[in-house]
């Protein structure tokens, strides 16, 4: 049984890149979306074990998504990773304060993400 990971990122190239990295880890099924709205729609339809989200997105921002997830009893246990760019310290700090588990600074190598995924998803 593979676990589902949701990736929320509006840039297509980043999204596919990250999705490809996550997909490369055995035992993970990836669901991707380009918008926070879509993410809100997907949440009740899937059982996600982990969410990876960008911060700056056009509809709702990633912080709002984190807040939504963390405030919702149905999802609050789901770990969230935020993807940030260097220099946006305030956004990153807020994300962590809202309950994001980890942050990744773009661009990053597959190895770092894979290690984090394995740790949080308790994969062998």
């Amino acid at each position: 049984m593979r676990v589902k990971v949701l990736i929320v990122e509006d840039s297509k190239a980043s999204r596919e890149y990250i999705a490809a990295m996550v997909e490369a880890v055995e035992g993970i099924e990836v669901v991707v979306t380009s918008s926070g709205f879509e993410a809100l729609k997907l949440l009740p339809r899937h059982r996600f074990e982990l969410i990876i989200t960008d911060i700056n997105m056009p509809d709702i921002n990633g912080l709002e998504l984190i807040n939504f997830v963390k405030k919702n009893p149905n999802y609050r246990e789901v770990p969230l990773f935020i993807i940030t760019t260097e220099g946006r310290d305030q956004d990153r700090e807020r994300g962590l304060a809202l309950g994001a588990a980890e942050y990744l600074v773009k661009p990053f190598l597959p190895g770092s993400l894979e290690a984090l995924l394995r740790r949080y998803l308790k994969l062998p």
Binding site: P107, L109, S112
Partner: peptide, 13 residues
């Protein structure tokens, strides 16, 4: 370039 980037991360090189 990427390696510089990875410095400090636990990258799986």
């Amino acid at each position: 370039g990427l390696q510089d980037f990875a410095a400090g991360s636990d990258g799986g090189l």
